[in-house]
Design a protein around this nucleic acid. Sequence first.
DNA 1: CGAGATTCATGTGAAGTATACCTTTAGGCTTAA
DNA 2: AAGCCTAAAGGTATACTTCACATGAATCTCGTA
Length: 402
Amino acid sequence: MGQKGLTNFFEKFLDKESLFENKRVLQANYIPETITHRDKEIKKIATILAPCLKLEKPSNLFIYGKTGTGKTLTIKHVTNKILQVAREKDINVKIFYINCKLKRVADTEYRLIAQFTRDLGKEIPPTGLPTDEVYKIFFSAIDAEQQLVILILDEIDYLVKKAGDELLYNLTRINSDLKNSQISLVGISNDLVFVDHLDPRIKSSLSEEEVIFPPYNALQLQDILKQRAKKAFKKNVLEQGVIEKCAAYAAREHGDARRALELLRVAAEIAERDGFSRIKIEHLDKAEQEIEKNRIQDIVIAQPKQQQAVLLSIISICSKRKRGIFTGEVYEVYKGICIQTGLRPLTQRRVSDIIAEYDMFGIINTNVISKGRYGRTKEISLAIDHSIIPKIKKIIENNLNL
DNA sequence: CGAGATTCATGTGAAGTATACCTTTAGGCTTAA
DNA sequence: AAGCCTAAAGGTATACTTCACATGAATCTCGTA
């Protein structure tokens, strides 16, 4: 495109009518004023948490539900309302939300407590302090004034798998030492059997109350989509059947509403980019691929180089042969990649742990099998769509200067 | 032929090490009385 | 003498390594039918 062409392009771009009225409505962090099909859950959570407005400690709460069933959305909605009322009536309630899955933010005991303490306005160094010390600072920051604090731990199962359940015990016990204030815990998990592995003492105190979020069915998903689409798009840009198809896609994936909304948004973006004036069903198919690519891309880019090298090793073996990929082979290929890129190879022990991490992210599936006379190993297979593998591969290769 | 021993390749737990970062402390220097 | 700065000492969390033992079914071995 020449200089003149570019000017032309931008002018055209400005002239082109956007399909969106308000794109934000479809983004993941948007909290709508009313949440459809979650009345029961909202009411229950509200009832459980309401005592905090009288500065009485609400029961600890545990929320289960698959991804995209509105857990995070609902708790944020309810807590926003509580905070709003609290502000009007000048009640000292504080609510902190943290997602435990965020790497290098809240995935260890130290980092989690440090993060909460920072939310309370204290400076905590990223490392160096004893964990007890951080607890003390956290403690005194809370007890400094009379108040009620609610801590929300999203994806708590991930944290416990990585860092153990001791910190939950510490958090539940902290109350007995607080003089002026109280804290309540809200745990959110999409692993339904997660609490069964917890220490019984923690289990009983953490799940004093439980709320379960059932998956949405296709009709409910349609309602949600229609409601948001009305706000998000201009009139008449949705072709017949798009919403229905979109809901059906997501219902197939255990009723994941987040996915449905993302699908709709990305489809619209694709339609807009390609110069269509209406969103067609075919755009949904393209969107689905794009989303999956982005999801994995985001995870991969956030990984350190060593981890990327391991994934690249798995991918390149996988693209040659589909079945029967084992740790030893992955390690050999990984070492080769390290030499090529000048990376210092990690030990097989560590690589084995990294492979387990990718398993947790859901990018690969692993299965420990015994091959009898030929030893014991992890059978590894990629859990991502084959059409996007080359793109991911390219991203990593670029990143590692290969 | 079949029960039990063997074997392989790696899983997995525990303990040790390197690194990056923190606070405390002691010594040296400056400054003001 | 008091105050301030700096560098060393001593402490911690995290990522990784080292060491050592655990696993579990295919295969081997050997006693017995």
